[in-house]
Design a protein around this nucleic acid. Structure first.
Lengths: 349, 349
DNA sequence: GTGAAAGCGCTAACAC
DNA sequence: GTGTTAGCGCTTTCAC
C-alpha cells in the first residue's frame, strides 16, 4: 500500500537524499554520475552499489540545477524564418533528430524575417542560456549575433548569411543554381524570362538575382524582375503576380525565387488560365511536394536539405565541444540540384 | 575605452552585484522585480532608482536560477507526430506564437508515433521541468501521461486522445466529417468507395474508419478498406496503394485518411494513369497546398487549425495559471469543413 | 520598508 | 578514495 503510493508520488529526491540513503557523500555520487569514478578511483563495488540504488529509487539529477552550476543547458536554439514553410520544417526535423542523438534538445521559433521580433527571441534564448544557435537570420541582427559569439555562444547561420559577422554559415550556391536554371530555359528556347523574387536584401535572394542577371546578360536577353514584399498575405502576393504577368504578355518563362512564391505563382497562372509550359514555362527555387504532382510537374532547384542539416549540426557541435574558441569562421556552400520536369520542357516553335 | 569594453564584455551581473551598486539588499530588488513593491511598500523613489540602474547596466535575471528556485520554467513541451507534416507544422507555428505572447517558450519534438521514443522525450522534457505539455500522442503512453498529471504538470492532447487518461484533449469530429465526405461521394453517384487509411488504433483513425463504415452501411454499399503501416518509406506506401487500386478495378472513388496518404495516393494514381475523377474520385482528410493546385483540385476535409491551436493553448494556460488542480478533464470536439473541389464532382453516367 | 539568511540541487576545489 | 563545503543566482520567510 505504502509502496504503491510512493511510486506514484515520485517525491523528487535529490543527490543529498540519495547520499544519505547510501551513507556516503553527494560528491561521490556526483563523481560517479559524471564519469569520474575511474579518475577519482572510486571502488567499483561502490559504483555498483550507487548505480543500483539510483536505478531502484529512480533518481534523476535535476537538470536545472546542473545547468545553473555548469552553465551548460544542452539546449540549442533554432530560429527559422517560418516553421510552416516545408523547407524550414524539413530542416528543423533533421536538425532536431541529429541534436537529440547528441544529447541536445531544441528550442525553436519562427522569426518571420522580422528583426525586432528576432532580437526579442534571441534575448529569450539567451535568458534561457541556450548553448548554441542555428539561425536563418533576417537582416539587421549583425550586432546581436556578434554579441552572442563574443559571449562564447557559437552561432551557425543558414539559408543566408550576414555580412561582417563572425558567425559560421552554411548556404547553397544560389547564384550558380539560378544561373543554371536560366540557361536551361534558354537552351529550351525561352527568351523572355522573368524572375519573380522577394523585395529583400538577404544574401540568398541577392545571389539568386545575380545568377539570373548573369545568365540573361550572357545571352543578351532583357531582364524582367518583379520584387514582391515578404510581409503580406498570400492573396496579395497572387494579385501582384497576376498583375505583373498581365502587364508583360511577352513573357514565355518565369523563375520563382522561393517555394512559396512558386506556389503563389502557380495559383496566379491558374487564375490567368495560362498553360504551362505552352504559354509560360515555370521553374521554382526550392522543391515542394506540390511541384512533383502538379500538371505539368514543375522544374525546381532543389536544395540538399539532408546535407545542410548535417553540416549545420556538425559545425555547431564542433564548436560546442572544442575549447578552442579562436577558430576562424567556418562556412560551406553546397550545390542545389536542378530537377528538370515538364514545366520547362522544350516546346515546338 | 574601458566603457566600451565593458559593454562588449557583458559581464553577467547578478542581483547581488546590482544590490551592491545601489547599496541596498538583493531582497528589495527581487521584490521590485516581482511586482511586490506595492505590497512591501517600497518607496516609489527607490523603485525608480532601481529600475533606472537595471536599465543602465542591462541587468537580466538568470532564468535558470529563477526556475531552480520557483520550479517554473515558462517552457511548454510540444510533441507532434512529425514537424515536417504541414498539418503539424502549421499547428506548431500557431501554438508557438500564442505561447510567446503569454511569456512561454516552446521546446518541441517529433514523436514519429513511436511510443518508446516518446517516452524518452517525455523524460527529457520532465528533466528540463517544462511547465506543461501539448501532445499528439502515440498509443501506449497512457501511464506516462497520467504520471505527469499526477506530478502536477498539465497535459493537453490533440489530433487524437488516449482512453483512460486524465489528460485534456482537443480533437475534431473525425467520424462525422468522414461520414459526410462519403455521403457527398454517394450523392455524386459513386458507389465503390475505398478508404485508404493507417494501420493504427489511434482514436482519430478509428473514428474516421467508423464514419466511413457508417455511411457505407446506410447506403448498403460494400466496404473497401486498405490499412497501411505508418512505419515505412513513402515509396513503399505508394507501392501498396498502387497494388490495392490494381486489385480493385471496380473502385470509383477513394477516401484517404490523412494528408500524406492523400499525397502518396495521388502519386499512385498518377502512376496508374487513372483520371480523376473520371476513373476515380478522390477525397483526402486534411487540406494541403497541393490539393488546391492539383488538376483537378482535390476535395478535402479541412481541419480548423487556428481554432485547434487556440483551444489548446487556452486550456493549457488555464491549467497553468489556476491553482485548482482538481478540475475535471476538459475536452472539445471541433468541426472540420468539407471543401468540395473537382476531384469528387458528379460525373455524367 | 528593508535586510539577513536559508535554501532550490548540483559540481568541484580542496582537504584528509 | 571519499567527504566537506562553497558557491551558481534567485526567492522568500522572518526579523527589525
Amino acid at each position: 500500500m505504502d509502496n504503491l503510493k510512493k511510486k506514484n508520488l515520485k517525491k523528487k529526491l535529490s543527490i543529498v537524499d540519495l547520499a544519505k540513503q547510501l551513507n556516503i557523500s553527494p560528491t561521490t555520487i556526483s563523481f560517479i554520475l559524471n564519469g569520474k569514478a575511474q579518475e577519482k578511483r572510486i571502488s567499483s563495488e561502490l559504483v555498483e552499489r550507487v548505480l543500483k540504488q539510483i536505478e531502484e529509487v529512480g533518481y534523476k539529477p535535476n537538470a536545472l540545477a546542473q545547468s545553473l552550476r555548469t552553465g551548460k543547458t544542452m539546449i540549442i536554439g533554432l530560429m527559422v524564418e517560418n516553421i510552416a514553410n516545408p523547407f524550414f520544417a524539413n530542416i528543423a526535423r533533421l536538425i532536431e533528430e541529429k541534436a537529440y542523438k547528441n544529447g541536445y534538445k531544441i528550442i525553436y521559433c519562427s522569426t518571420d524575417n522580422d528583426s525586432a521580433k528576432t532580437k526579442d527571441l534571441l534575448r529569450i534564448f539567451q535568458d534561457r542560456h541556450v548553448d548554441g544557435y542555428i539561425i536563418s537570420p533576417p537582416e539587421g541582427i549583425e550586432k546581436e549575433v556578434d554579441g552572442l559569439i563574443d559571449n562564447g555562444s557559437p552561432v551557425v547561420l543558414f539559408d543566408r548569411y550576414l555580412h561582417d559577422t563572425k558567425a559560421d554559415f552554411i548556404v547553397v550556391d544560389n547564384a550558380g543554381s539560378t544561373y543554371e536554371a536560366v540557361n536551361h530555359l534558354v537552351k529550351n528556347g525561352y527568351k523572355n524570362i522573368a524572375f519573380i523574387t522577394l523585395d529583400s536584401l538577404q544574401t540568398q535572394m541577392q545571389d539568386r538575382l545575380k545568377g539570373y542577371e548573369k545568365a540573361l546578360n550572357e545571352h543578351a536577353l532583357s531582364h524582367h524582375v518583379k520584387e514582391i514584399s515578404y510581409y503580406q498575405e498570400e492573396e496579395n502576393i497572387i494579385r501582384h503576380i497576376v498583375a505583373f504577368l498581365e502587364r508583360k504578355p511577352e513573357l514565355d518563362a518565369v523563375l520563382f525565387g522561393t517555394n512559396y512564391l512558386g506556389v503563389s505563382g502557380l495559383k496566379a497562372i491558374k487564375k490567368l488560365n495560362k498553360r504551362v509550359p505552352e504559354d509560360l514555362a515555370v521553374i521554382s527555387f526550392d522543391d515542394h511536394t506540390l511541384f512533383e504532382l502538379h500538371s505539368p510537374d514543375i522544374t525546381a532547384i532543389s536544395q540538399p536539405i539532408e546535407e545542410i542539416s548535417e553540416k549545420l549540426i556538425t559545425i555547431l557541435l564542433g564548436r560546442l565541444n572544442k575549447t578552442s574558441k579562436a577558430k576562424k569562421t567556418q562556412s560551406a556552400v553546397l550545390a542545389p540540384e536542378l530537377i528538370v520536369r515538364g514545366s520547362s520542357r522544350k516546346i515546338k516553335a
